[in-house]
Simulated assay, not measured.
Amino acid sequence: MARQSPQRPDADEPELDDTTASATADELDVDRPAADRALWDELRIDPVEIALPAGTGFTLRAYRPARELTPTDVAERDQDDPFLARRQVVETEDDEEMVILDEEFAALSAEDEDEERPEGRRRGRTEALDEEAEVDEDEVDEDEEEDAGDEEVPVFLSHRGRLLLFKTPESLVSFIRSGAPNDMSQLDSWNELSERVEPADIAPLDEDTYELDLVVENLRGGHDTWDPTLLIEAGEVARDLAYALRLPAVLDMLSAGSRLDDLDEALRATVNGGIGGFMGRRRLKKIGAQTASLGWRTIVGKISAVVDWRD
């Protein structure tokens, strides 16, 4: 199950002393045998547990070379929710795509950058971005395109741009066996999974369990309460979901050089310790809690908007 954030204590559960807590943990270890990972390792697919404000659900994720995957079709999703499509991507007069971010987050990010960056540096970066924008896409090296095709990218159990989240392992297994259309059915190991998977196999590893529902509240608590593990793992799954579900606004908010990417790098530095950890803590102090929490509120909202909950 997902870890309980120190920001959200469960008032219904009595406090346990160290002895009782240790005994309880031992009992859980005895009662809950480790799941057999042979099936997942063989088929290169993993069960995943994701907690969102609306609830917690199970799904599947795999990584495959980009050239082997057909991206999910988002045409129907964006047609059903034109506001979702409009707030993510619009066409400019030059027929180029432009990503639209949450207005409040974009404004706060701009203010933070202006406060930190000298005028000359701001102007230099703007000029550099303008020069990059003028590069003709036809000049992309063929070798780079081939490398991109070999890069492993995420694919989730989704359909037509919506993430399928199941409230129980039984309902997830029932769907896998049903033969219903989904984006993972293109995998060469999908048919074998549908024949062999059992509810007991749906036991995500700790590193495949994500608590997106706790991120915003944790960030609002301020720098001293930030949970590096929680936030780093949230960033990893959010990037995967944004790529697999084709959410360009989320990808942009987490892209290299963005405010939230700076937060991620600083948190990783603090975890690694040493002089890098010291520098990471200094960098964290420069990242506004309001900016970070507002940005993540937007990300969690955009992901939640494309979830298809299944009982």
Rank of each mutant, 00 (worst) to 15 (best):
P53N: 13
G179D: 05
A289W: 07
Q7T: 13
E127A: 13
A249M: 03
L230V: 01
G57W: 03
K286S: 14
R64M: 15
T72E: 02
V307H: 07
E104M: 06
R282W: 02
R3I: 08
G179P: 11
W296Q: 11
R44Q: 10
Q290D: 07
G295S: 11
R196E: 14
P228W: 02
R121G: 00
Q4F: 01
D227R: 08
R123S: 13
L219E: 10
E93V: 12
F166K: 11
P33N: 09
E103Y: 03
P47E: 14
A234Q: 12
E265K: 04
T225V: 07
R259Y: 15
W190I: 05
R86K: 13
R87T: 04
I176V: 15
E137S: 06
R37S: 09
L231M: 01
R32S: 10
E137A: 07
V140Y: 00
I100V: 15
V307W: 09
L267V: 06
A180Q: 03
D141C: 00
E111C: 04
R67K: 02
F83V: 15
D183R: 04
A133E: 11
P199V: 12
T70A: 14
E233G: 08
D95K: 07
S22A: 15
A34G: 07
P14S: 02
R246Y: 12
R121H: 06
T291S: 11
E211M: 12
D213E: 15
D102F: 00
S22P: 00
L172V: 10
V48I: 06
P228S: 04
S293F: 14
L163H: 02
V216C: 04
D136Y: 05
D36A: 13
S171C: 06
L69K: 08
M1N: 12
R77T: 03
V173A: 06
R44F: 04
G288Y: 02
L84S: 15
V155M: 08
K302S: 13
L263T: 03
R268Y: 00
